[in-house]
Design a protein around this nucleic acid. Structure first.
Lengths: 227, 227
DNA sequence: CGAGGTATTGATATCTTTCAATTGGTGTGG
DNA sequence: CCACACCAATTGAAAGATATCAATACCTCG
């Protein structure tokens, strides 16, 4: 799924290129613009749609009993989001960069509704999602702060980075708090790790939201679990 | 999914009772016994089947580059395991208690093969799995060692426990190392937490593999994320 | 009964969090 | 256009939690 931070494994929940619709599905999917700060759906909403992100970035969150928030994932172009648990969405989903999605009717999931093809697409996206999340598990449980942040940067750069000369640059549309919540760290720790990477000339930070990878090799090394 | 350790949310990937097969699917599913210590499948195997566990316990693991092992999940009766990423299995799967499964042909997933009904069942199991894994995320990232172990015990007891008088008992078919790997802790920490729970008269341990819950309320309390 | 793996317990080290202060960036109104 | 205010990010010092290293106790199986 989305930003899963496992360079070593499968490349997140993206639709297989091959299975692009070759004919229009029964109920035509709907395009939808989504402004920054607005919710595509909220936890508990009736899941009437499933969405494929065509551009922008979404943040999927959940709120714990005690009010603390967990960032479940970041949705990037190509991802499918909004898998319902039953009939309800189980996360909040907010655009953190101007986004566009394609909405598929939820009951495309139900037998005899929606094309077999759409159903296939979604099923396979779900299976990829599961695989990706399993990768993320390993991340969360067995990696140090440095390894987590480095992995996060790598994944983000791989999926949204743009090359500049020999280097690659990439925007961090999310706040430090978002990153921290996603990785299971605190803001301070994330900040400290970024500072360290900066001081070691692995990355450069411009205006806190833009990162330039100066030494991808070192970053990759830092993301590896050191025994 | 399997043992997801989120009492506060959805109850893991089990098939919805309602959607039990009402008629035999095209290709009849196969029953299969699985002895302790034997593998149902291994990472990298071609995923020819998907399995529904009818009894026993499985351990799903993955191996990291450095040789360390991550326990992705424990499969309990009612769970569906073996979701393929593409055509390959992405975890090892070993029985840790004498088990029995129903095997469904993998290509039941592909359009026009297998009954629509089986496909539905699997799709919905996959969706539940995703939801359950998201719960597990929160576990791994925002809970302390005590909270993790307590949550783990609760889930296990809820799914496999047997009442004895006012108390409930339950077997831990997995080793401390398995539990530690699953929760992202070390064996020592798991052991220390169990000892503490024992000293506080919340649980009793008999022969290290059997746990008796003496104070479920206290255990539930210990599993809650304390601000 | 003995051997070998598994679990527990203890002491110490390491990492991350927490608390607190400072700096930096952004937007608004004078 | 600058100044202020507010929120986000960084930095520092100390506390807390878990990991690591090491030793001992406990099962289980030949």
């Amino acid at each position: 799924m989305y930003v899963t931070l496992s360079n070593e494994f499968s490349p997140a929940t993206r639709l297989p290129e091959i299975s692009r619709p070759r004919r229009a599905p029964a109920a035509a999917p709907q395009r939808k613009q989504q402004a920054v700060g607005t919710h595509l759906f909220r936890e508990g909403d009736i899941a009437s749609n499933i969405y494929e992100i065509t551009s922008g970035v979404f943040r999927l969150t959940r709120v714990l009993e005690n009010g603390r928030r967990q960032v479940i994932a970041f949705g990037l172009p190509g991802d499918i989001i909004g898998f319902p648990n039953d009939t309800l969405h189980h996360t909040d989903c907010e655009a953190i960069a101007p986004a566009e999605v394609i909405a598929y009717r939820r009951n495309a999931l139900d037998a005899f509704e929606g094309s077999q093809e759409t159903q296939q697409r979604i099923l396979h996206a779900a299976l990829r999602e599961i695989s990706a999340m399993q990768d993320h598990f390993m991340m969360l449980s067995h990696k140090s702060a440095m390894e987590k942040v480095a992995s996060f940067l790598i994944t983000l750069v791989q999926r949204t980075g743009t090359p500049i000369g020999n280097y690659t640059t990439c925007t961090l549309p999310m706040s430090r708090a978002d990153i921290a919540d996603f990785l299971g760290l605190t803001v301070e720790t994330v900040s400290r790790v970024l500072t360290r990477l900066r001081k070691e000339n692995v990355i450069t930070l411009e205006r806190t939201k833009t990162v330039l990878i100066r030494d991808m090799e070192a970053l990759a090394l830092a993301s590896q679990v050191g025994d």
